[in-house]
Design a protein around this nucleic acid. Sequence first.
DNA 1: TGCGCTCCTGACCAAAGAAGTCAGGAAAGT
DNA 2: ACTTTCCTGACTTCTTTGGTCAGGAGCGCA
Lengths: 162, 162
Amino acid sequence: MRVSAKADYAVRAAAELAASEEGPIKGGRLAEAQDIPLQFLEHILLDLKHQGIVHARRGAKGGYWLARPADEVTVADIVRAVEGPIAHVQSTPPEAIEYHGNAESLQKVWIAVRASLRTVLENVTLADLVSGNLPPVVEELTANPDAWVASTGTKEMATKGD
Amino acid sequence: MRVSAKADYAVRAAAELAASEEGPIKGGRLAEAQDIPLQFLEHILLDLKHQGIVHARRGAKGGYWLARPADEVTVADIVRAVEGPIAHVQSTPPEAIEYHGNAESLQKVWIAVRASLRTVLENVTLADLVSGNLPPVVEELTANPDAWVASTGTKEMATKGD
DNA sequence: TGCGCTCCTGACCAAAGAAGTCAGGAAAGT
DNA sequence: ACTTTCCTGACTTCTTTGGTCAGGAGCGCA
């Protein structure tokens, strides 16, 4: 239920690519712009390349660029490319799990979890990110000040929250 | 972005507790009912106890029971108890991250991710789970058949999907 | 042709987490 | 006392995370 450094780095690097639509940008510049360890970033960019999200060229005037226009690449695409499937339970997709007894409805809950993640991640494109013009669903979710604090917390909870 | 076995087990065991409101239920019965390794389950139940979600008594007629009524315990409570904070990025809460340059809006996206997870997890109680009567937000999210398949997939994607 | 630049790839590494197992101790009931 | 059940820490195995290192392969240019 957490976002890895890899996914975070990947989206940030991709945003940087989306921002400047002028020829290939080299890894070093991306690393510097977003303060990401270069060698780690190169592995990440390789993943993105293998998933067909970016293209790359080597040599003097080489670098990386987006394979598709920035408004056709979603954050979900990037996260899946580096982290694999979203919202799997015990490494199996929620639709493939069989629950028994009193937990039968739990499958529906995990499906809902995945669906709600998708409504955010699949609706934000790199173009949205760099323009700062986020889709309505994100604006609505972040409009509530409670979304910005650790945890609403049920009465008798003393937890740190999230 | 995945759900651990621990969290899955915890919710299932809690659901079993919520289902039978008749005195303490012993770990062995929970383990059998939901097919969970007993010794592993005991550690999980201990976590739940430390978070004040269940109570326990030892000895002959001992066992576990919910500390609060089943309609006042949410799935979010359980997940937080065993997995810690939800939707942290690089182990830090999204509201505490500072992004620079073209990634500035990314913070808002992660906040939205957390908020959307909360709308599901904090609205499903154990009572909802065992009754099968899930809140409207879950019914809406799972009504769409697309929610039940691996991935809608952008055109040229050949990924396995989630 | 050669040279430098940049990507590409695999190997490696330390630390942490995931998923359990094992062994023993401490309370509760009979 | 004795059994039952929870409680706890230690330990194990495997994978993931977050990197680093060393070298190879293609690209452009003089």
